[in-house]
Nucleic acid binder design. Structure first.
Length: 615
RNA sequence: GGCUUUGUAGUACAAUGGAUAGUAUAAGAGUUUCCGAAGCUCCAGAUCCAAGUUCGAUUCUUGGCAAAGCCA
């Protein structure tokens, strides 16, 4: 072995490895790997290098944490830091200006030149942060409503999450197919149908001037009222509670109706179609208002028989087994789960079976290797089982199944309960948010010259922006508390704050001279801390999108956007743009403002929110 | 009963195993001759408890306690 030769070859290969297009932290990692190899002959990979933003109390921009490899290199952190810092600064003069070592931390200062070059190269790029197509396809299933109830606060979190994660994945370069599965059949809708037959007197959403989904939901409520009444009556007649709950006449009628539906009885099917039609009309109105859309909608009435042949296949393969009563099961105890039924003894299939069938159908239609299901965390177990069964059946789509599980939205008083009337209706909430944004806007009186169309659109943008931001700023996995009073605050960590900063920047840019903005200029004077802070933050945007896409977490975008807006706000109140101390600074700050506005716009768009030019 | 998830200021949220745990709100004090005050500046306050792994733990492991969900 001739180390010099090998080193020589590898050194060349590694020098080429520093990619000028990647983020500054990535370049720093690559440079560190290269430095360690050239100094000590040890080859590391970039993901073993830990790079953090330098804490404000220390000199520098980025910090390499040295503790991780002091053992391997047999050097003290101080010596290692000094040697490494020296090497990095000497060999990457365009990147690093200076370094210092404190304890096990190597702090590096990036050259002002790097930052100003970055700004010049990107400030006119309207798609800054958006990645090129990567050729991969991913499906996102979200919303998935039941047709017996209007949408509520929990659905809003689902819809905003699903829409946002789809947009974030698009930004990361994926080809995204948004789908929705509508639960349009089953006992729940039969309950609404029965109640309508009993109490409706032929009423329709039109005759009662009610939104279709609310109209049908009202009959579901009526059903439950009547059911409770009947149960109470039966108990009074001396029947046990348990028995009464099974024998209530209205329940029996609903069950009969479900059977008639399955048998295809024409008048039942007709009623079913009519009531679902009303619901869809209502849903479409809501979807349009909140900006949800789907490339493909599946209906459970068309998918609930799917998967039956898969049960047979599973039995042949020995993945499933049959019990004496002829029901079919899968034993997942070896995987730490239970035994799970996949076909009842009467031959009807269960939820999980249809889901497997639908997964196969979707794969055959779209050939997407990744399929994301945006569904509440109460179904964690269900999706664990679904994925496992698909894997055991060796379905091609199995490994790509990902359950994007989100926590419940609670009120400060606890869970929403329909019985106690504490369910927050989606339509009510949306219109309330819009009404409040109108009121606040009018109080401030800055857009008195707007036409009524412009005003309507502005109130929508602000109201929905506030709502979406509020629901998306929290890590999806966690349950969250929705405080009606706080969520309508437009100050602090909110969507309207970001919209306000955007509008402000636009106002500055409108007043500025276009030529100043686009002036080609060498920036020679030193960057002030506030100037640098913004450019550093702007540079991170693509990495943030990557993170958010990798973790399916829109809150990363929300938090980043807010921080950027806040940094700009501080900067702006301290340093003048129009009356900057020099021509050079004026151009620089205009470009900073331009790119900040662009990034805020893109960031908010990825959350499904708009940013107004004025507000 | 079994399994899963979550416990961070009064409240709501942050923190790939890294430096003195960030931010917003609510309370207090400032700040409009000047690019938009839905702003900015200052001031305080927290990791459920106990062990373990580690140079280093909010983060990982185990055991409690508490809350939520799923299964029977």
């Amino acid at each position: 072995m001739h180390p010099t030769n090998i080193n020589g070859i590898i050194r060349n290969r590694m020098s080429e490895n520093i990619n000028k297009n990647s983020s500054i932290t990535e370049q720093l990692k690559q440079a560190t790997v290269q430095a360690i190899f050239n100094l000590y002959g040890i080859e590391l990979t970039t993901n073993t290098i830990l790079v953090n933003a330098t804490k404000p109390e220390f000199e520098g921009d980025y910090t390499v944490v040295l503790f991780a490899f002091v053992k391997q290199l047999k050097k003290s952190p101080e010596v290692l830091g000094a040697e490494l810092g020296q090497y990095l600064v000497e060999n990457n003069a365009t990147l690093f200006a200076a370094f210092n070592v404190i304890k096990g931390f190597l702090n590096l200062s990036v050259t002002d030149n790097y930052w100003t070059n970055f700004l010049t190269n990107n400030f006119q790029n309207n798609s800054y942060g958006i990645f090129p197509k990567n050729g991969e396809k991913v499906m996102v299933e979200y919303s998935s409503p039941n047709t017996n109830k209007p949408l509520h606060l929990g659905h809003l979190r689902n819809n905003f999450l699903g829409w946002s994660i789809a947009e974030i994945l698009k930004a990361k370069g994926y080809d995204v197919v948004k789908t929705c599965i509508v639960n349009d059949r089953g006992i729940h809708i039969c309950k609404s149908m029965i109640a309508w037959q009993l109490f409706g007197n032929g009423a329709t959403p039109q005759t009662t001037n009610t939104k279709g989904d609310h109209f049908v939901g009202d009959y579901y409520v009526l059903y439950n009222d009547e059911y409770k009444k009947q149960v109470a009556e039966l108990i009074e007649q001396g029947i046990t509670k348990e028995e009464a709950e099974k024998k209530a006449p209205i329940l029996l009628s609903a069950q009969q109706m479900l059977q008639d539906w399955e048998a295809g009885k024409p008048e039942v099917i007709e009623l079913w179609k009519a009531m679902n039609g009303w619901v869809y009309e209502g849903f479409n109105t809501t979807y349009q208002a909140i900006g949800s859309d789907f490339d493909r909608t599946y209906y459970e009435s068309q998918t609930y028989l799917l998967g039956k042949d898969l049960v047979e296949k599973g039995l042949e393969k020995g993945v499933f087994y049959q019990k004496e009563d002829s029901s079919v099961w899968i034993d997942l105890t070896a995987d730490g789960l239970d035994e799970k039924i996949v076909r009842r003894k009467d031959g009807t299939s269960v939820y999980i079976t249809q889901d497997i069938g639908l997964a196969v159908d979707k794969y055959e239609e779209y050939h997407s290797n990744k399929s994301i299901y945006v569904v509440g965390d109460e179904q964690n177990y269900h999706f664990k089982v679904l994925k496992l069964i698909c894997q055991k059946l060796q379905l091609p789509s199995a490994d790509g199944i990902f359950h994007l599980s989100y926590g419940m939205v609670e009120l400060p008083t606890g869970k929403m309960k329909s019985r106690e009337g504490t369910v927050v209706d989606a339509d009510d909430l949306v219109s309330e948010m819009i009404a409040i944004s109108q009121q606040k806007t009018e109080e401030l009186g800055k857009v008195k010259d707007f036409t009524s169309e412009e005003l309507t659109s502005l109130y929508n943008t602000i109201g929905l922006g506030a709502l979406k931001f509020f629901l998306l700023r929290v890590d999806p996995k966690k349950k969250m508390v929705f405080n009606p009073e706080e969520s309508i605050e437009f100050q602090g960590f909110t969507g309207p704050f970001i919209q306000f900063i955007h509008a402000r920047i636009k106002s500055i840019l409108r007043k500025a001279n276009e030529d100043d903005l686009n002036k080609v200029m060498a920036f020679n004077s030193q960057l002030l801390p506030l100037e640098k802070a913004i450019i550093v933050e702007l540079e991170q945007f693509p990495s943030i999108i990557s993170d958010a896409a990798a973790e399916y977490d829109p809150s990363k975008i929300a938090i980043y956007s807010y921080n950027l807006a806040k940094t700009f706000s501080s900067f702006y109140s301290d340093l003048s743009i129009a009356n900057a101390e020099s021509e050079e600074k004026k151009v620089l700050r205009l470009q900073m403002a331009k790119l900040t506005a662009q990034v805020l716009k893109t960031g908010m768009r990825l959350l499904g929110a708009g940013v107004p030019e004025r507000m």
